[in-house]
């Protein structure tokens, strides 16, 4: 028996080590490429340890017009998308909380919208956006609205779980005291949802910040960060691509590692 325990323990250790290595290697390579000179990146055999360090790429990212603009644009698009998704998600979750029929409709719509393939929506959407003048605009408003629609299901389901935890008695008591539905929503529910609202906002923000496909198709010249990283990574500049990738990864990693408890125990929609 003890020998089998030992074997299991070795397996556990090996697995942990494997996980750590596969997680650390990509991040290490990214950081290495972002700080090493161009010659190092093209060396053969590839160097695992940089010979010369430089801040040139990071400087380029913050000073070149195109790169800085896309950084700002990505932040704007993600902010608009996250605000919209959180607002609409709260409304939807509220409507679904106490009403069985609304819940059915809501869940059906959320499930359906999660099944759509990006390409089947993005191609005709480009045509629609051209017609209403929101295609490839410098502000990226059209893209922000699509990102909001993608993030809405996640936000709504997260908030639905939070709504479900608020006791019905609280609403009844407020109702007996003469509070209107709006007052109940704004002064009873919302204060208890602070954490869930913050989580919904952050997750929506990140999903927009990371989104690639719609960005590629709907903002071909006024690019957001992910498509720009794609162009740099595939068509040339290794150093700039890595520096750009690092800049876009750092905030994500910090936030997500801090929030990993929410991620691991992501609430599921209650049965309907």
């Amino acid at each position: 028996m003890s020998q089998r325990f030992k074997l299991l323990e070795i397996c556990r250790r090996a697995l942990s080590a494997f996980a750590v290595v596969t997680a650390v290697v990509p991040i290490y390579l990214l950081i290495k490429q972002a700080f090493s000179v161009e010659l190092d990146s093209f060396a053969w055999p590839p160097r695992w340890i940089p010979h010369h360090l430089t801040l040139e790429h990071l400087h380029k990212v913050t000073s070149t017009g195109e790169l800085r603009e896309s950084l700002i644009r990505s932040a704007e698009v993600a902010t608009v998308a996250a605000c919209t998704a959180t607002l609409l998600g709260t409304m939807l979750a509220y409507a679904m909380t106490r009403d069985l029929r609304a819940r059915r409709w809501g869940l059906a719509a959320l499930t359906a919208s999660r099944l759509l393939p990006m390409i089947a929506v993005a191609l005709p959407l480009a045509t629609v956006l051209i017609r209403v003048g929101l295609y490839d605009t410098p502000s990226g408003l059209g893209l922000a609205l699509v990102h909001a629609a993608i993030a809405l299901p996640v936000a709504a389901i997260l908030l639905l779980g939070a709504f479900a935890k608020i006791p019905l008695e609280l609403e009844d008591a407020a109702f007996l005291d003469g509070a209107s539905q709006l007052t109940i929503l704004l002064r009873i529910y919302l204060p208890q949802l602070k954490q869930a609202l913050a989580a919904a906002f952050v997750l929506s923000f990140l999903s927009s910040w990371d989104e690639f496909g719609f960005g590629l198709l709907l903002q071909p010249t006024n690019r957001t960060l992910p498509p720009l990283i794609y162009y740099y990574a595939v068509f040339g500049d290794v150093g700039a691509a890595s520096a750009l990738a690092l800049v876009s990864t750092a905030p994500v990693l910090i936030v997500l590692v801090a929030l990993r408890h929410i991620l691991i125990r992501q609430p599921k929609p209650p049965a309907f």
């Binding site: 996980a19 997680a23 990509p26 991040i27 990214l30 990371d210 992910p226 990283i229 994500v252």
Partner: peptide
Amino acid sequence: TEVSVLMPLLIPEIV
């Protein structure tokens, strides 16, 4: 280990 297992999901897809 926990963070490492989750890491590929935490990095932006394109990165």
